[in-house]
Design a protein around this nucleic acid. Structure first.
Length: 559
RNA sequence: GCGGAUAUGGUGUAGUGGUAACAUAGGAGGUUUCCAACCUCUUGUCGCGGGUUCGACUCCCGCUAUCCGCACCA
């Protein structure tokens, strides 16, 4: 219990600091705020950007990954095809007597085996037919059924010509719909992946726990397209020494290397295992404590409808274990869904190891003679003739699909005899998708980096961020702002800021110790102090955030 | 969405039917030869909208937001 209140107090101190120092703060606060919406402030903005960039670089390093940027505004049809319109909807009706809203499918559970599967109009008519009693007031009077979708509605285009659309609930669909361009770019060779970092939107009924459930959130997804007929070989040797915490479905936590997890079929697909290992590397790289990281397998009934295997990376922080990454084997679900909805082909070609030779022997219609002879029936006749056995002799009576019989003469048909060699086939690639919740990851980076246990029981706050994601690289302090020290420090500050990718903050107010403390609080890795000696020999002291140690470096050697 | 609690400077808190205090942080100056020291001056606050009242930050109602349960969601 003590530790609980201790944790809650720490969480409060940390939230206060994040707000005060401009890392994470409630959005639109002067207008009363908005639930589930947060700002990354002047410090947090760059932190988020660096995490995003680290993520992008991490995947581009694989060598067969491209980066995409798709719209957040998405036509209705796309998300209907993907299943989001159905899956993300609840159909609501309101009791006209007491105004209590209820889910229509819940009201009809007693009257239908699977009301969840009904469409809106089916629910509507069944509701009016059954007219169930209101669980709240026992009246039997219901409003029209309306869809309460967890996606944000919008209209694409103005006025009556506008088409319905949504703000995307995930970045993935844009990558699936441009699959053809991706395949062409990769010159028809699999496997390859597409990544995208961007905003996603879910109109959550009840966003909670600060950054953990948001209505607008930063996500980063990789869609990795593979050939299901080919075994995916991955080299796991670089993770040989790492025992990962795994929580397989229905089992106790185990610790094992990713290679063992894959070979024992604990992880059911090698590419899923490969991405679990890559995810582990990424999270550790940005500062997640590996001791507070585990992978949990989805239970069969918990898994999304399309997934074949799914592992969540969960991180332990102030809110307990939180799902921050989902690594799902989605099979061919998505591409197939868009194929069905559009009639377009979203497939890749694979060559058979040995071409298949097919003997074709049969009949086809002679269009020049049969066309004029059968006129409107010609199409049906062709189909029927092509279904005939090679041994058929003409003239003969042919039964069409409609049941009608026609006389077909020898001049109406042609014998087809040839050998076809089929070298390969078109197939729908499978997709393995690691999906990262950037906000949740950033929250846990901050949570794991936040240290406010100073020496001697005094509170002293240090944000122990990794150098690669620290929002500010350097603070530049003149020991005093006189005798040329202020001037030299300002020049150094400007030089640093002008260097690509470097952010420096100049601070001359307060004692030197106070300035170090300010820098530590937002995790600046190095503070540069200009003192009297600097004026003489051009060196400054470089102070390390975590050790407090200092050494002198010439300003020319800083960059 | 339901139930409970809460909302006062940037942050953390006190307080009152007669327009607000403390700490800390911030700014300017001084002092100081490197880890939140000290001195002087200084900036800044009652979530929003109604109602009651001569007067509301305070009482009432509604809304919004936050936190905790439940439900929902992944």
């Amino acid at each position: 219990m003590d530790s609980m209140t201790h944790d809650a107090e720490r969480l409060e101190r940390m939230s206060g600091m994040l707000k005060r120092r401009g890392i994470i703060l409630p959005a639109f606060e002067i207008h009363g705020g908005a639930k589930g919406l947060y700002d990354f402030g002047p410090v947090g903005g760059r932190l988020r950007n660096r995490v995003n960039q680290t993520w992008i670089n991490h995947w581009l390093a694989l060598g067969n990954i491209v980066e995409l940027s798709c719209p957040t505004v998405t036509p209705y049809a796309v998300l209907e095809a993907s299943g989001h319109v159905g899956e993300f909807s609840d159909f609501m009706t309101v009791c006209t007597a007491c105004e209590e809203a209820s889910r229509a499918d819940t009201l009809l559970e007693a009257s239908h085996p699977n009301p969840d599967a009904l469409t809106q109009s089916e629910l509507q008519s069944l509701l009016f037919e059954i007219n169930p009693t209101c669980p709240n007031c026992n009246e039997q009077s219901w409003s029209e059924v309306s869809a309460q979708n967890l996606m944000f509605n919008t209209t694409i285009g103005a006025g009556s010509s506008g088409r319905p659309g949504f703000l995307r609930p995930e970045t993935a669909q844009g990558m699936f719909t441009s699959f053809s361009a991706l395949l062409r770019h990769n010159r028809d060779r699999l496997p390859f992946g597409a990544i995208q970092v961007g905003k996603g939107y879910r109109n959550e009924i009840s966003p909670r726990q600060g950054m953990i459930r948001l209505r607008e959130f930063n996500m980063a997804e990789l869609e990795y397209f593979i050939n299901p007929h080919e075994q995916q070989l991955h080299d796991f040797s670089q993770w040989a020494g790492i025992e990962m915490r795994l929580l397989p479905d229905g089992q106790e936590e185990v610790k094992m290397s990713i290679e063992d997890a894959v070979s024992s079929n604990t992880v059911r697909h090698s590419t899923v295992g490969f991405f679990m290992a890559q995810t582990y590397d990424f999270l550790v790289k940005v500062g997640i404590d590996p001791e507070r990281l585990r992978f949990r397998q989805h239970e069969a009934d918990e898994m999304a409808h399309y997934a074949m295997d799914c592992w969540d990376a969960e991180i332990l922080g102030s809110y307990g274990w939180v799902e921050c990454v989902g690594i799902a084997h989605r099979g061919c679900y998505d591409l197939e869904a868009h194929e069905k909805a559009t009639g377009k082909t979203l497939r890749a070609r694979r060559e058979f190891s040995e071409p298949k030779v097919v003997e074709i022997d049969g009949w086809t219609m002679n269009g020049a003679t049969a066309g004029p002879a059968f006129r409107a029936l010609a199409g049906a006749v062709k189909k029927a003739v092509e279904g005939l056995d090679a041994s058929t002799s003409f003239p003969t009576l042919v039964t069409l699909a409609s049941g009608e019989e026609v006389d077909v003469s020898p001049e109406h048909v042609k014998r087809v005899q040839r050998t076809e060699t089929i070298s390969g086939e078109w197939y729908i690639p499978h997709v393995v998708e690691p999906a990262f919740g950037i906000d949740r990851i950033i929250w846990h980076i901050l949570d794991h980096a936040y240290d406010d246990t100073g020496k001697d029981g005094d509170s002293y706050t240090v944000l122990r961020l990794n150098n690669s994601i620290a929002p500010v690289d350097y603070c530049v302090f003149p020991l005093f702002e006189k005798e040329g020290m202020g001037e030299m420090a300002r020049t150094l500050h400007r030089t640093l800021c002008a260097a690509p990718g470097i952010v420096s903050v100049y601070d001359s107010s307060g004692s030197i110790g106070r300035r170090y403390a300010r820098a530590d609080e937002i995790g600046v890795p190095h503070c540069l102090t200009v003192d009297h000696q600097s004026i003489e020999d051009g060196t400054v002291t470089v102070r390390n955030r975590d050790t407090g140690e200092q050494h002198r470096v010439h300003t020319d050697d800083l960059l």
